[in-house]
């Protein structure tokens, strides 16, 4: 009997012959409502729950709390340290940026100065060149004017000589050299 019931009642494996007897007796006795088991269940519930409460509140929960607290402390301190380091690195980065900006300003100033100096030199050279060119031009022009004047004066003398000679050769009238020169001048002026 016991073996057959055990085979057909899988969940009753831990149930031994005692259950079978109790089961057979208690026709319709629903185990959760069977008051004969209440005292021992309440007793063991009190023991088990009291034991659990003692173990938990005295040992396990404080331990767990200390682990979690240690972690949160560690986390907050790590976060603080990270924030501090970040502030430091930010300051370093700002200083670097500033130095960079200064260097850039300096560099552009130097470049400007160099550019200005070069420009001024070029300007001076150009002005010098221009000035010397203008002087040469003026000399040349003066030479030309002188040559021209010389030539012109030469032309007047030749014309006067020629006219004198012509007048002499014709010998019709005499004219003084000064009259002739005046006449040539007047003719040339036309």
């Amino acid at each position: 009997m016991a073996t057959t019931t055990e085979a057909t009642q899988p969940a009753g494996g831990e149930a031994t012959a005692t259950t079978e007897v109790a089961h057979g007796e208690g026709h319709g006795a629903f185990p959760p409502f069977d008051s004969s088991t209440f005292p021992s269940q309440i007793l063991w519930l009190a023991i088990a729950f009291g034991l659990l409460y003692l173990l938990m509140s005295r040992i396990a929960l404080p331990r767990m709390a200390s682990v979690l607290d240690a972690r949160s402390d560690r986390l907050t301190s790590d976060i603080d340290a990270a924030n501090r380091l970040k502030g430091e690195s930010d300051a370093v980065a700002a200083a670097y940026e500033q130095a960079l900006a200064e260097a850039r300003n300096n560099a552009s100033g130097i470049a400007q100065k160099a550019r200005d100096a070069a420009k001024a030199e070029a300007d001076a050279k150009r002005a010098e060149a221009e000035a010397s060119g203008a002087a040469k031009l003026a000399d040349a022009e003066a030479a030309i004017v002188a040559a021209k004047a010389k030539a012109m004066s030469g032309v007047g003398a030749i014309a006067a000589d020629t006219a004198d000679a012509i007048v002499k050769s014709f010998a019709v009238a005499t004219a003084t050299k000064s009259e002739i020169e005046q006449a040539v001048k007047a003719a040339l002026a036309k």
Binding site: Q9, A11, G12, E14, A15, T16, T18, T19, A22, H23, F30, P31, P32, D34, S36, T37, P39, S40, Q41, L43, W44, I47, A48
Partner: peptide, 27 residues
């Protein structure tokens, strides 16, 4: 289906005034 809820006395502890105390499978 009700069989699984049976309380089994694993060993008896004692009896006080008609109430029997035992170490059961539930305990």
């Amino acid at each position: 289906p009700i069989h699984q809820f049976h309380i089994v006395d694993l060993f008896q502890i004692g009896q006080i005034g008609g109430m029997k105390f035992a170490f059961t499978n539930s305990a």
